[in-house]
Design a protein around this nucleic acid. Structure first.
Lengths: 188, 188
DNA sequence: TCCGATGTCTAGCGCTGCTAGGAACGAGTG
DNA sequence: CACTCGTTCCTAGCAGCGCTAGACATCGGA
């Protein structure tokens, strides 16, 4: 029993090291630099080993994204509970800060095509938690509007601001003003 | 003179056919299907010919994007001038319809990394025109807010809605409701 | 001590964007 | 008319990609 247990433990560790290596490589050099060959070299195993853990490169990216969802949810929750009074600005700022701090991670989560279920009950828990934080921050400001739809719309605004800025389509200098404006328009 | 003129004309035609082929292939099979080999086969020349017209695949995508900007600007203008009264809803609907009708084209314009100047005076004219249409539609509703920043923020909202929906991150059914909500929040 | 299963590696497939080097063609000159 | 020079285009190939088949070694159990 013990031998098999050790093997499973080592295997789990290796799987973690794959995800960690992929994330590290992506965050320092971008997803283009994350190739199966480099990943294999990083974990000091041969390429095919990757495929005994994940179905393919896409699955590895999905695993990295999942890690990101958990972190984002935690940071949003921290921002919301720390805020006294209306939390929307604090949560939005935390969201933006996360995207700015981890651009490659953010891309894996929200831009690249990863086949994770999103707006369904089957969505991964961390994802639903993160969305839930946004929803709770918006709830006091919802008025007559449907809370779910309103949250999705605000989220889209946030996401649009960040992706367009990061791809050079919006001037960086005005980021704070745009963010403030978005929040004020959703606080009316 | 005439011979050289014919050659330049033929060359220009070939360049157009490259862009057209790239766009057609992208719109029917997605950008992944747009490879230099398929493109070369499509125009019935060998691969290196592409590189005598464009610096690389990225430049071809940029040319396709540019075509898209012109069309989008025209459609936004048509929607704005046809509208009686507040034009924001009409322009937003036209924007969304364009993105829905030409998803691959939209991606080249706003998602994929194309090295075109955006929020600067050097930005291509069609791009500035399109943004200008959005700005004019928003102007009556700007109030005390900076018009430029407000336009950018609304645009981001629109862009976020569309990209998140198209990548399966937002439920399609609620699209109209979200769009209406975004507009109402920017009309207050 | 041998056997069978498990785990890992080497090698390779078909594809990608891109380029070097040579062949063929046409215009201009003696 | 013959010849050279420039241009245009193609064949062939490079390095790298995601992914996989098949050989090989290693190790627990009989």
């Amino acid at each position: 029993m013990s031998i098999q247990a050790r093997r499973e433990r080592e295997r789990a560790e290796r799987e973690r090291s794959i995800v960690t290596a992929a994330r590290g490589l992506a965050e320092t050099e971008g997803w283009d630099a994350v190739t199966t060959r480099r990943l294999a070299a990083e974990i000091e195993y041969s390429q095919p080993v990757l495929y005994s853990h994940f179905k393919g490169k896409g699955a590895i990216m999905a695993a990295v994204a999942l890690e990101g969802f958990a972190e984002l949810a935690a940071e949003l929750r921290a921002a919301r509970t720390a805020a006294s009074g209306p939390a929307l600005a604090a949560v939005a700022a935390a969201y933006a800060a996360f995207a700015e701090r981890h651009p490659a991670l953010y891309d894996a989560m929200f831009t690249h095509a990863v086949d994770l279920p999103f707006a369904t009950p089957e969505a991964p828990a961390p994802l639903k938690e993160g969305f839930g934080e946004l929803r709770e921050a918006i709830r006091p400001l919802a008025g007559d509007d449907d809370l779910e739809v309103l949250t999705e719309t605000f989220w889209s605004g946030l996401h649009g601001l960040l992706t367009l800025m990061r791809s050079g389509r919006l001037r960086r200098e005005d980021h704070e003003r745009r963010l403030a404006l978005l929040i004020s328009r959703f606080s009316g």
